[in-house]
Design a binder for these strands. Sequence first.
RNA 1: GCCCCCGUAGCUCAGUGGAUAGAGCAUCCCCCUCCUAAGGGGAGGGUCACACGUUCGAUUCGUGUCGGGGGCGCCA
Length: 578
Amino acid sequence: MTAFVSPKSRITTLFVEAARAVAPDHDVAIDLERPKQASHGDFACNAAMQLGKALRRNPREVAQAMVDALPASELVEKTEIAGPGFINVFLKPAAWQGIATQVLTSGDRFGEVALGGNARIQVEFVSANPTGPLHVGHGRGAAFGASLANVLAMAGYQVHREYYVNDAGRQMDILALSTWLRYLALCGEFVPFPANAYQGAYVGAMADGIFALHQDRYRRAAAEVVADVPDAATDPEGHLDALIANARRLLGADYAYVHGYALEEQLGDCRNDLTEFGVTFDTWFSEKTLHESGLIDKAVEQLRKHGHVYEQDGALWFRSTAFGDEKDRVVRRENGIYTYFAADIAYHVNKIERGFDRLIDVWGADHHGYIPRVKGALTAAGLDADRLTVALVQFAVLYRNGQKASMSTRAGEYVTLRDLRAEVGNDAARFFYVLRKSDQHLDFDLDLAKSQSNDNPVYYIQYAHARIASVLASWGGVESDLLDADTGRLAHPQELALLRRLAEFPEAVAGAARDLAPHGIAYYLKDLAADLHGLYAACQFLVDDEELRLARLALIAATRRVLQRGLALLGVGAPDKM
RNA sequence: GCCCCCGUAGCUCAGUGGAUAGAGCAUCCCCCUCCUAAGGGGAGGGUCACACGUUCGAUUCGUGUCGGGGGCGCCA
């Protein structure tokens, strides 16, 4: 099995040699583009115009020199010099015809590119607090991160998918408290439920669960729970913190049970939700372990050793302003508790110490202000902050009947990822989430995602796949019968267009990986499906001429492969029937 | 106030230092005796917000202006 070398990269090699011959002392990047107009050939090279400036010669002269220096190739039909100095290359049909069988023989490797050089790359995504069901905002991060990780793997990286579990913070304590208060009510101990505690029905469900397992083992007197607690109306946050403190004191060692129960339930729910969504992780990394193993102490000590930490107002500060941040940040509060940021520093130091060559953090766009301080902390710790790339994902807004679907996080009244999946299906959800550039706000049209019409790009692409499956089923043969097909018979313009498109798949993968932009795959697949539908309308596949029939079947079988592989990158199914 | 994203066809959005800027929807016209019409072909529709720079060349890069969206905690 030989690696696939696209016509584009083979032609590029020719131009690199030509440029070297014409201008040995100048380095010019040869970047062939596919012209918009068919009359400009298969590829256009603009190197002569760039070299023209460097050599102080007329670009068209340089272009002629390059054409003269171009090594002979059996792929090239002819070249011509056009416009201000473009070199247009016209390929023989044979250059494209071979693609069909190359796709079939390269099996499950077509699309692989060596961009990553087998480097170890970690993609951390979702990482939502396990304090309740995932909502549609998390869904976008999940779909984006999972697709990106798949793309990077195909582009030659060793990919490690990780979820950072915030199991150590105040939010988890609030969840544990919320659960316990609901549980106490079941025991007959009524404590007013704070408005800023977790309101969702899932909290009550967890209380039911604990009560069913342990009856009133964790019951404490309501009067003790609210003892010495500040007024909820005037000091809601203090009220909550005091309730948590009382819960810890009254429950003693049992507090860990309630806390752990809530954590396991919510994390389990989150994991199930994501698994059903086709999103899986290699590691679920616990924040708590950073505290317990002393990694935070160690990381802060590392910063202190380098002189980037100081004390003020009883708190410990990281001098992030020395690294481009707009203000210094607290790492340990007056009360001696590390901030979330301190854990984040330790976490990122740990990631690099685990030996990853590159780190990708997928964050909600609201966290963009954190980039300078996290990168600054890495630099301050003597590490290479350039290994870290933060991919920001903007918010998704749902639209139903042309109206914005409301999302109030406060009252626990938000649309969950599970609701969305149930409403539009996993395939449409995965696809729509990555259809926009990640750094762009996403308007998620629920009606469109649900519609089974040609307005809906998911169905358009899946339909292309189903059509091919249907034709191949009518034919009745097996794919291996097609490996010897004489693809030289593929000369129809629609056939050549589809062949060219197939050859572009590796480039689409490389581009999506380089730009951390899996939406490029979605757009590629739309184009590929359009080419297939165009061919379907123009040509009959199951023709009497056996040679032509096999050639065409080889072409669409190859197309089916690429559709499958592309859809798999996005976590979208490729049904045989629709 | 500071920071981030965006401004491309009526709408939703791709694209990108190159030649005549694309797709889907919407509008109008056409195509099923045939492997799935969930499809295909065609027409109209644009000062790529504006200005000034950089460049052989700018929708793309830079600066500014205007307009839209979002974010700013000893929360996580």
